[in-house]
Amino acid sequence: MKNVLKALVALIMLVPGYLLVVNAFKSQDDITGNPFGIPFDRLSISYLTATLSDPNYSLVRAYLVTALFAIAVNVLSLAVSAPAAYVIARGTRVRHRALLGLFLLGLFIPSQVLVIPVIYVLKFLGLMGTVTGFLLYETTLTLPVSMFLYVAYIKTLPRELDEAARVDGAGPIVTFWRVILPLMRPAVATAVVLHTIGVWTDFVNPQIILGPGSALYTVTTSVYAAIGRYSTDFTVVYPNLLMAVAPVLIFFVLLQRNIVSGLTAGATKG
């Protein structure tokens, strides 16, 4: 009974993935004729390579752009949130707790809706449609989770570390940089995993802030642009979707344990 249930769940979860992989190698006739079948003698890799050579939405370029965005957001997020988390975690005053509350409020703000008034702010700053504007907003969206993780983690580090550094004549900045930050590695790893997945799968923000006008596509926006035009041509749909998820699936298989434990920490620390 238990095993029947498990098998059933596995089937429901895996069938869409199976269709995604198999149909990326099939012709339109083979897909519509028998979506679940594998016509071994007629499989072709040409549909996948076509997604790479599409001059309008080059997926190779999109991979590169998205990966650079993910790196930039992670670096920026760590650079601004870890120092602030240190002060808040060590602070004892009401204003420290109030500030943390302000950051955590962001956990409940729907970013898809917030982005509309953000457009006005970006326009005012002259950053609408720019990579800088996009990265600043995307990084801001990571701050609530980062602060949540980092404050909780720093609170577990003994205050004697700070005291010892102070006796040695170090100020808060040096203490943070030399003593605290090197110890934060596990929490940083968790944040990096969550934010990388967040940036890679984000669609609304690059679509709206960078827009079709900037000609700068991430993986999700380029797949959206490619599929939007040919949604009934399955030799475009399946290969594009497979190419979009292939890197994250490899990332997932390699780092599955870290992703799962990171997510658990992200939802329960504090």
């Binding site: 995604l20 998820v245 994250v248």
Partner: peptide, 19 residues
């Protein structure tokens, strides 16, 4: 197996299920 949709993300999942 139950967790993998999380890393695929909602926009790709939507397109896959619409196909």
């Amino acid at each position: 197996v139950v967790f993998y949709p999380y890393v695929i993300g909602p926009i790709i999942i939507g397109f896959l299920w619409s196909a």
